[in-house]
Design a protein around this nucleic acid. Structure first.
Length: 875
RNA sequence: GCUGGUGUGGUGGAAUGGUAUACACACAGGACUUAAAAUCCUGCGGCCUUGACUGGCCUUGUGGGUUCGAGUCCCACCACCAGCACCA
């Protein structure tokens, strides 16, 4: 018996209990049966689920349930990306140890996830902060060290001189430390690197073999990897003899190397610039106090590329010159803050006539500008800059190279440089090796021991895992592991003498670079076992677009490393990728006396609208005083515009939350939060329930539809149902779930229009239509469809039902309506038999009065007929 | 700054090169009710035309182009969003 009113709390608890009892989502390896590994990016356990999580996991769950109904053996696991900075921040704020905070959050969020009814195999849950997990980070790190894929070199970090600590980019605000307000400095420290550049060629090439990835993500990765062909060019130099050495003695000589993709402009180089940290810059600064001060200034500020690229371009001459490799002219050597030590050679040749940045720099510092390419903008380079100056073209003012085009000039110049041993063609990559050392506590300990005699010694495998002491509480000044003797002091594995453990931990991107392997064999006594060869690769990966580059690239890299170590047979981890859009919401604020904005949560605001429903004003519910309406932005703590999904689930139930999320926008677009949209989703589910309750007896008793003897209204209703079904199945296959929901609404609308009577034909049509609707909606709203499916006697578990197929007989009609255009403009409609031939259609179209009016006796040049759709009369 | 994306009614959005605005939300009017809520019904891009039926013109950020036909493909521009290597 179906209760009169829809009570989501009761039916959702009941459905979830049923699935638990049945172990409905336990995934087992069944060789020979087609598998489907559906994976959503695991959450960081920040405290509570946010709307982005609900959206992400609903999308993944809909796909998993859709594939299950296609008959696949589906694996959908879940776990926790549990190491990271927020736990340390929480510890500083409240004194709770990161481990405690993290595990409490996991417990709460797991309950929330379960209440949403996701078809997850919880037996495979992993948390990256568990020693059983991160020991394999350490183990693979050691294998990579053996292979030379991990190595040590210096890297640049943000240094807070007051707290004496390294800051994450996020902790640097306008060039200052977030807690101390001190000006941040760049500092070089030794770090471990993973040689992702060794795989650059393969990471690039394999993108062409990932048809299931969005083009935009592949393009972003391609540009990030940044393969460029160019020429490495040497500029010989001779340093002046230093002040201390005897007069007349020659100074040290050498070659300054640069890389350029525009070797054809070499004759236009008018100066050479090096990074502030470049050895030549440091050498020149020894006898040049002003230059030393400039170089010191370049140390201020953060290390992000965005900051470096947008800062004011500044430079200073070193007083040194280098020699042009072809003309032997002396060129001034400058230090410039826009040259990055970490990219290429840390030095560039500057061609102001054909490079926008060099052009601006040359103007600012009065350096010569020499055009050497005939561009579409002409032979000169007058200010202001025009993009055309950077065009390719024939060489001019370039002596023997005049008249050559780009390729010819590059070939000729590279050959001449090669003869002098001052250059060769070279491929370079924008991609840099991955620095994984973090001077932080809450992460995977790097398994290295420092011995005074033996140096940096790898921890032997038998001593893994190096366990992180779980009860430390960071205080914001440095890494607490450095103050923890039990962790710090150990014996050297080689000589046995007292030694010191490495206290740096790994970047948390390491944790997330292979967790999808661990789900396949969460209890294995090795990193992965043969079960991974059954499940991998992931068939569908779902997550935020913000991960399009780093996480996905690192995961691809780790997979290739694991393949080369014989740990897996796959070379790419994710066959298909869906990048979901953000959840956004309006913002509200008041300005405080100090001009700072106080952000007010949308839940506490009442919005007044005009007669068209547009918001015109808003007031705070507490005091009824006005608040300012801000922009619509990504739900975030900083703007206090987050809506807590828990309230939504408690008020309306999981099915409403899921239905709203799927209906409000296609998965890959931004989703705007709307209270009334949620109410609308709830209203639809209530309508569905009420319809089932009202007709339950007739539906239970109904037989099969007899298509041959249906009345015209029933035939029409049935056609609508099957048309919506056909479209919805297509939309499922392309993951456009918002129109799947529309299709479901159309079906319920069509069924509701069937006249209420006791006709057995009507009952049969209702039974068929509702059966289709319940299956269509079951991946999206699994609880209500589960309950109704059973109650109406369709079967045991809708989750195991097969997809219905549209009945082609229901779709066919005897007459079709064709749109008639004249010269592409809509002028009328004609109704023709479905099997009308082209001549008959053309005749009917020309006979239409409005068509005749617009043709007006002009000769008809052509008639385009699109079968079943339209006729276009061209005259 | 560089890289990638997005732009359609009052709002979220639909349209597989072929009737732009499906399906919802909001709003307005009506039914039911003592009343409210809930529910149900009707209307709903703009301008013009007609007594009405009808019909016309305009409209998918802006300006061009390709095509019998463009929201969709191409070029340029504008606005907004995301990422930029230590947030995850």
């Amino acid at each position: 018996m179906i209760a009169e009113s829809y009570n989501p709390q009761v039916i959702e608890a009941e459905a979830q209990r049923h699935w638990d009892e049945q172990r409905a989502f336990a995934a087992r390896e069944e060789p020979g049966r087609e598998k489907y590994y559906c994976l959503s990016m695991f959450p960081y356990p920040s405290g509570r689920l946010h709307m982005g999580h609900v959206r992400n996991y609903t999308i993944g769950d809909v796909i998993a349930r859709y594939q299950r109904m296609l008959g696949k053996n589906v694996l959908q696991p879940m776990g926790w990306d549990a190491f990271g900075l927020p736990a340390e921040n929480a510890a500083m704020a409240s004194g709770v140890a990161p481990a405690q905070w993290t595990f409490d959050n996991i417990a709460y969020m797991k309950r929330q996830l379960k209440s949403l009814g996701f078809a997850v195999d919880w037996a495979r849950e992993v948390a990256t902060c568990a020693p059983e997990y991160y020991r394999w980070n350490q183990w693979l790190f050691l294998r990579m060290l053996e292979q030379g894929v991990v190595y040590l070199k210096t890297g640049v970090v943000n240094w807070d001189p007051v707290d004496q600590t390294v800051l994450a980019n996020e902790q640097v605000i306008d060039g200052r430390g977030w807690r101390t307000g001190a000006l941040v400095e760049k500092r070089e420290i030794p770090m471990y690197y993973m040689a992702i550049t060794r795989y650059a060629e393969e990471l690039l090439a394999e993108l062409d073999h990932l048809p299931g990835w969005p083009e935009q993500v592949k393009l972003m990765q391609k540009n990030w990897i940044g393969k460029s062909h160019g020429v490495r060019i040497g500029f010989p130099y001779r340093l002046p003899s230093s002040a201390g050495s005897g007069a007349g003695s020659a100074g040290e000589s050498g070659i300054l190397w640069v890389f350029t993709t525009r070797a054809d402009t070499l004759l236009g180089a008018t100066y050479v610039a090096v990074a502030a940290e470049h050895p030549l810059a440091l050498h020149a600064a020894k006898n040049n106090p002003a230059l030393a001060i400039f170089i010191d200034e370049c140390r201020h500020g953060g290390v992000t590329e965005a900051e470096l690229a947008t800062q004011e371009k500044k430079g200073m001459p070193t007083g040194l010159t280098v020699t042009h490799p072809l003309t032997n002219e002396p060129l001034p050597l400058w230090v410039a803050n826009y040259v990055l030590m970490g990219y290429g050679e840390g030095a560039v040749m500057a061609v102001p006539a054909h490079d926008e940045r060099d052009f601006a720099f040359a103007h600012k510092y009065n350096l010569p500008i020499k055009p050497v390419i005939r561009t579409s903008a002409g032979d000169e380079t007058p200010a202001p800059w025009r993009d055309a100056y950077a065009d390719y073209g024939a060489c001019i003012n370039s002596g023997p190279y005049d008249g050559l085009n780009f390729e010819q000039a590059v070939d000729a110049i590279a050959a001449d440089l090669s003869d002098k041993a001052l250059g060769e063609k070279k491929v370079t990559w924008r991609l840099r090796d991955w620095g994984i050392s973090r001077q932080r506590y809450w992460g995977t300990p790097i398994p290295i021991i420092h011995c005074a005699d033996c140096g940096a010694v790898p921890v032997p495998d038998a001593q893994l895992p190096v366990v992180l002491p779980p009860h430390l509480v960071p205080d914001g000044s440095g890494n607490p592991l450095n103050k923890h003797p039990e962790f710090l002091h150990c014996a050297c594995p080689q000589c046995g003498k007292p030694a010191r453990r490495e206290t740096d931990t790994m970047d948390t991107f390491v944790d997330s670079s292979w967790y999808f392997f661990r789900y396949c064999a969460p209890d294995a006594d090795m990193m992965v076992d043969g079960r991974a060869n059954y499940w991998m690769p992931v068939d569908q990966y779902v997550g935020g677009i913000e991960h399009a580059i780093l996480h996905l690239l690192y995961s691809r890299f780790w997979t290739k490393v694991m393949r080369d170590l014989g740990l897996t047979t796959v070379k790419e981890p994710f066959a298909n990728l869906l990048t979901q859009g953000m959840v956004v919401a309006p913002t509200f604020y008041r300005e405080g006396v100090d001009g700072r904005k106080q952000w007010i949560n949308p839940a506490d605001v009442a919005v007044q609208t005009d007669d068209k429903g547009r918001p015109v004003a808003a007031t705070l519910r507490g005091d009824n005083q006005p608040v300012t309406i801000g922009a619509i932005e990504k739900m975030a703590k900083s703007k206090n515009n987050g809506v807590d999904p828990q309230t939504l689930i408690e008020q309306y139930g999981a099915d409403t939350a899921r239905l709203f999320m799927m209906f409000a926008a296609p998965p890959d677009q931004a989703l705007e939060w709307s209270d009334s949209g949620v109410a609308g989703a709830y209203r639809f589910l209530r309508r569905l329930w009420a319809y089932a309750a009202e007709h339950q007896d007739a539906i239970r008793a109904a037989g099969e539809v007899n298509a041959a003897i249906l009345s015209e209204p029933l035939r029409a209703a049935r056609r609508e149902v099957h048309e919506a079904l056909r479209q919805a199945l297509f939309d499922f296959s392309r993951h456009q779930f918002n129109t799947v929901v529309s299709g479901g609404m159309k079906i319920l609308n069509a069924l509701s229009r069937i006249e209420a009577d006791v006709d057995a034909h009507a009952a049969a049509a209702r039974r068929e239509g509702l059966g289709i609707l319940l299956r269509l909606l079951s991946p999206i709203a699994p609880h209500i469809t589960h309950a109704l499916w059973r109650e109406l006697g369709y079967g045991e578990d809708v989750l195991n039902a097969a997809w219905p197929e549209p009945d082609t007989a229901a779709l066919t009609r005897s007459l079709v309506t064709l749109v008639v255009q004249v010269n592409g403009k809509l002028r009328g409609q004609i109704e023709v038999p479905v099997d009308a031939d082209r001549v008959a259609i053309e005749r009917a179209a020309q006979a239409e009065p409005n068509v005749q009016r617009f043709v007006e006796g002009r000769p008809i040049r052509k008639i385009v007929v699109v079968p079943g759709k339209l006729v276009n009369v061209v005259c």
